[in-house]
Write a protein that binds this DNA or RNA. Structure first.
Lengths: 355, 355
DNA sequence: ATCCTTTAGTGTATCGTTCTACCAAGACCG
DNA sequence: CGGTCTTGGTAGAACGATACACTAAAGGAT
């Protein structure tokens, strides 16, 4: 096992003290002459020096790692989410330590503790049912937290947050169906344990109210997830729900699904019953995962711009870690849009083509 | 920022030396009386002691983190892969540090170096084009490597490996189509940069040879990926490829896709051209991702048992890290099976139902 | 009473960096 | 010429846990 190159070997080769090498490493270049600096840099590259993060962390209490706690990487949406975070973090020289929370608060708490003991001081939480006071305790301890998809109000909390306006999303999806002429619209979801899901439902309700359609509770289907995670089984739940809703006496002609996985599951459920999409039933999803465009028919859905969201989220988190940013919680809400494809049409008709 | 509890605070409260606390922490319980042990444990829980991994790592050179380098988490197969690794690692008290290699050797190398400097001494590589000698260099340095989906021969290398027999997989997929009566069978892939892909192709060829069908190079479509990653765009490539293959003068009646994403993309391509699945063209995939079962029609595919594979892989990697296992490279090949759903049927016929 | 073992611990150097002091030597000023 | 800055460094004590090398006390054998 080859020994790692240390700062003192570099110092010895360059003929300076370890302090000077450390100064260079930490950007305090004003404290040395250009010649010295060049000598050190030469020595570093000759020896192939690689900083020892453990030692550095022991001293500073910081490590260039950000934690990421999400419900489940097995869901393609979260896969893309992780990808986006990872990319943004890497651009700033940070690594990502991953945790699957499985929407289980206890497990998320365990992760957070473990992350802390690894010297991680910045964590991004995906959509989660974490109780606010638990996060708060972590924040008091010095952890920087960035929350995705949880409703926060500016000044209301000490945490930064980023999300799409889920209410608007739910409204847009429902509104699109309404504009097409649908009157009976179903809502398909799994356990409503996160604020984002509740907000999407709220948007759905508001759209119906604005269209002066009486609310029918029988049209809202909230599936139970056996494991409680409600992610991998999303498609399965969507399928079951679509079957339940469509086999009712007065089936809906349009379905708003809580996310694309549910929507794609609803495709299967509709097919099981012999319904064609969109001729017999229109379906709209949420997220715009890659598969949405490949599905048959391509899925109309609400798009979340995760790449840009995560770039911003990771940016402000790292700014906080590095002390560049301080001050009150920064809460951003990103505009959202519907992308219309071919899973929606006028009730009992041929596909609706956007142009 | 609350100070972390250290081993000496625990020692002070329990009235022992730090050495004794350390001994307890490291399982050397034979070196102390039951009473002392109980006092220390009480003190630890009273203070809420959490070990500082940085300090420990600085001393021991080890850290309870395993690295995971995969092409792209955005692909649902790799998402499930990460999930499986994470679960297995967590059960042993390890965390996972993630890296998206993007099938780019330079980037993978950068990751590996970075992982090393974080004290990570065990890494799992997903399917990758890494040159063997580069990995070898890492191994010499003391890194324990576990390679997924790369063909290794027992005794041939110093690295552990796990994979499915991709040749058999390609054979099984092709054979299934042959058994159904297909004679013109296309092969759909992206860049053949990994051994697993080449092996699947080999299996396809062998099946045709065994069936005494003359090999027609026009039936093999190898797409180019614009970014080189060939993952996110898998479905897109599959779509293009299916269109190319199916619009030929003598189109194939069956298609073997390099993985499920390509297969699902091929669904879209076939539809673009007005082909029905499986009546006009049969399609078989590889991996058995969650969406395979939800697709319309449900996809016949070769299943990779990733959960059990990763449990074994993580197990032997950690055994190596902890010194429990040593000796020659451990290469395991896991049996594979085809799961027949409704995307395959006899040529020009109604769906084939397994029972 | 002496010597040897065993039990139950402890003292302390060490891992690789950082960072607060501190300092030497020249430049500048009046 | 003495004093004060400025520039370009250096010394060395941390950070928290580990593990090697000890040892004090008690028990057993002779």
């Amino acid at each position: 096992m080859a020994k790692a190159v240390t700062i003192q070997e570099v110092a010895a080769l360059a003929g300076v003290s370890t302090s000077t090498v450390s100064n260079l490493l930490n950007g305090r270049i004003s404290r040395m002459s250009a010649a010295t600096r060049a000598r050190i840099e030469l020595a570093m590259s000759q020896l192939g020096y690689q900083a020892n993060h453990a030692a550095r962390q022991l001293k500073t209490g910081q490590s260039p790692i950000i934690g990421l706690v999400i419900p489940s990487v097995a869901n393609p949406f979260w896969g893309a989410f992780v990808q986006a975070v990872e990319e943004a973090a890497m651009a700033r020289g940070y690594q990502v330590l991953l945790g699957n929370g499985g929407r289980d608060p206890r497990r998320e708490q365990r992760y957070a503790e473990s992350l802390w003991s690894h010297g991680v001081r910045g964590v991004i939480f995906g959509s989660s049912p974490l109780s606010l006071d638990y996060i708060l305790r972590l924040v008091e301890r010095g952890l920087h937290v960035m929350v995705f998809d949880r409703r926060l109000h500016e000044g209301d909390t000490v945490m930064d947050g980023i999300s799409v306006d889920n209410r608007v999303g739910g409204y847009l999806a429902t509104r699109h169906l309404l504009d097409l002429g649908h009157r009976r619209i179903g809502f398909l979801s799994g356990p409503l344990r996160t604020s984002s899901r509740l907000e999407r439902l709220e948007g759905y309700r508001n759209a119906l109210i604005d269209a002066e359609i009486r609310h029918d509770p029988a049209l809202i289907w909230v599936g139970e997830s056996p494991t409680g995670a409600g992610d991998v089984e999303g498609a399965e739940i969507g399928r079951t729900g679509a079957r339940a809703l469509l086999s009712a006496e007065h089936p809906p002609t349009g379905l708003v699904a809580i996310n694309d996985l549910y929507a794609l599951g609803a495709y299967a459920g509709a097919h099981d019953l012999g319904f064609r999409i969109p001729e017999d039933v229109s379906i709209v999803g949420f997220d715009d995962i890659t598969m949405a465009d490949m599905a048959n028919p391509p899925l109309t859905t609400i798009k979340q711009p995760i790449d840009s969201m995560m770039q911003s989220a990771v940016g402000t988190l790292i700014d906080r870690l590095e002390g560049t940013r301080s001050g009150p919680a920064h809460v951003v809400t990103v505009p959202i849009e519907i992308v219309v494809r071919n899973s929606t049409a006028q009730p009992g008709s041929r596909p609706y083509r956007p142009d």
